[in-house]
Computed example of a mutant assay.
Amino acid sequence: MADRATYPVQLVQPDGRRVFDREHAASVADVGPTELRELYEDMVVARRIDTEATALQRQGQLGLWAPLFGQEAAQVGSAHALHRDDYVFCSYREAAVAYCRGVDPAKITRLWRGVAHHCWDPAEINMTNPAIVVGAQGLHATGYAYAAHLEGAEIAVVAYFGDGATSQGDIAEALGFAASWSAPVVFFCQNNQWAISEPVRVQSPTPIVRRAYGYGIPGVQVDGNDVLGVLAVTRQAIARARSGGGPSFIEAITYRMGPHTTADDPTRYRTAAETEVWQRRDPIDRMRRLLERQGLWDNAFEQRVKDRSDEVGARVRTATLELPDPDPSELFDHVYAAPHPLIDEQRAAYLEGVRS
Rank of each mutant, 00 (worst) to 15 (best):
T254D: 01
D42K: 13
A116K: 13
Q221P: 08
R280F: 06
L56S: 06
V202N: 14
Q57T: 03
V19P: 03
T318P: 04
L291T: 00
R84H: 02
S329R: 13
E52R: 15
L56F: 00
D21Q: 15
P266L: 10
Q236Y: 07
T267L: 05
H24G: 02
G295S: 12
A26E: 13
A55S: 12
A131F: 05
H117K: 15
G60P: 02
S248V: 02
I217F: 03
N126T: 09
I238K: 11
G70N: 06
D15F: 03
P341M: 09
V354E: 05
E345C: 09
Y92P: 02
Q221W: 14
M43D: 00
I155C: 08
F301M: 08
R93F: 05
A116S: 15
I250L: 12
G219M: 02
V277I: 14
R113M: 10
Q190I: 00
G353I: 01
T254S: 07
C189H: 05
A26P: 00
G245N: 04
E311C: 04
V277D: 14
Y336L: 08
D21F: 08
P8V: 07
R242W: 01
I49C: 03
W278I: 02
Q203K: 15
Y92K: 14
A96D: 03
R304H: 08
E124I: 15
E274G: 01
H140D: 10
I343E: 10
I284F: 02
G313T: 03
H149R: 13
Q303Y: 07
R289S: 04
G229N: 05
A98Q: 13
A338H: 12
W297V: 01
Q168R: 14
V220E: 06
V316P: 01
A79P: 04
S91L: 09
F188K: 10
V186W: 02
T261F: 11
I208F: 04
C100D: 06
V209W: 04
H80D: 00
Y160Q: 09
V158F: 05
Q190S: 08
H80E: 05
